[in-house]
Computed example of a mutant assay.
Amino acid sequence: MMHCIGYIKFGNTYPIKMKNGGQKEMVSFTVVDGFGTNYSFQMWPDDPQHAEVAAIIKDARRQPVQVDVASHVARLRKFQDGSEKPQTNFTATNVQFLSGSITPRVWCSGTVQYGGAYEVGGKDRSKKIMLSFSVADEIANSYAFQMWPDDPQHSWLAPLIAQARRQPIEVDVASYVARLRKFKDGTEKPQTNFVATNVVFPGLSQSEQSA
């Protein structure tokens, strides 16, 4: 599962019209992590904490919080000027309001589905080796991770990642971006890519990880 520790930037509740004509109250709030990255969270009435969080979220600005991610979805958001941009929304669960000083962090624990190292071209026509791997959590979410050569672990992880299928993994999120991915059939769909750092394989010994 993905977990987020940070500070609430703002939050509120909003009535949302449903396709069946009904209405639901959505709790919406943004959490900022230690890298200054914003995470847009939503909580729906089917979550056991909905009523509790709805009652206090408006007054929770700047409060330290820990939130688990139940799911995430990338979608095209339409702005008032008519433009559309990809945006990632995270569904919140297990919200804990913390006290005292915290160390903001976003991390994911799960199992490597697949991974590899790929040569990609930069805008400056340079070639870089991008490490790409997918992590599945215990509630069937899948997270697409990338690691770039500027990360200190890049040279260590590059020879390991292709052999890491089905290995338990814990990985910190340095940042993320929602973008339109173009598929072979010409269609485009929003996708979220997470930038990985501080990768640990709990199932491997220190010698196996450094081999």
Rank of each mutant, 00 (worst) to 15 (best):
Tyr39Leu: 06
Cys4Tyr: 01
Pro202Gly: 03
Trp156Asn: 14
Thr197Pro: 06
Thr111Pro: 04
Thr187Ala: 07
Gly36Ile: 09
Asp185His: 15
Ile129Gln: 09
Val195Phe: 15
Pro152Met: 05
Trp107Lys: 12
Ala140His: 08
Pro48His: 11
Gln113Met: 00
Thr30Asn: 12
Met26Glu: 02
Gly121Thr: 14
Asp33Gly: 12
Val65Met: 01
Ala158Leu: 05
Arg165His: 10
Lys182Tyr: 13
Trp44Leu: 13
Phe10Thr: 01
Val67Ile: 14
Gly121Gln: 14
Gln163Thr: 13
Val173Lys: 05
Lys189Thr: 12
Val199Ile: 14
Lys184Leu: 03
Gln66Ile: 08
Ala55Thr: 12
Thr30Gln: 04
Ala196Asn: 07
Val73Met: 03
Val73Cys: 01
Arg62Phe: 03
Cys108His: 02
Val95Phe: 04
Gln66Ser: 15
Tyr143Lys: 03
Gln167Gly: 05
Ser71Cys: 01
Leu157Ile: 15
Lys128Thr: 09
Phe10Val: 06
Gly82Leu: 02
Met26Thr: 07
Ser40Asn: 14
Ser210Lys: 15
Thr111Phe: 04
Ala164Val: 12
Pro64Arg: 05
Asp59Trp: 09
Ser207Val: 13
Val95Ala: 14
Gln23Cys: 15
Ser142Ile: 01
Pro45Ser: 09
Val27Thr: 08
Val120Asp: 10
Glu25Arg: 13
Phe201Ser: 10
Gln206Pro: 00
Ser132Met: 05
Leu131Lys: 08
Phe133Thr: 05
Gly116Phe: 11
Pro86Asp: 05
Ser155Cys: 00
Glu208Pro: 02
Thr13Ser: 12
Gly11His: 12
Thr197Gln: 14
Lys182Val: 03
Phe97Ala: 12
Asp47Arg: 11
Trp156His: 09
Lys17Cys: 08
Ser40Ile: 11
Tyr14Gly: 00
Ala117Trp: 01
Lys123Cys: 02
Leu76His: 04
Glu84Trp: 00
Gln96Leu: 01
Asp185Phe: 07
Ser142Asp: 01
Ala51His: 08
Glu119Cys: 15
Ile8Arg: 07
Ala158Val: 14
Tyr114Asp: 05
Trp107Ala: 09
Leu180His: 08
Ser126Gln: 15
Ala174Glu: 06
Ile5Gly: 11
Gly100Thr: 11
Ser28Lys: 12
Gln80Ala: 05
Val67Ala: 03
Thr187Gln: 13
Val65Leu: 08
Thr93Pro: 01
Arg61Ser: 15
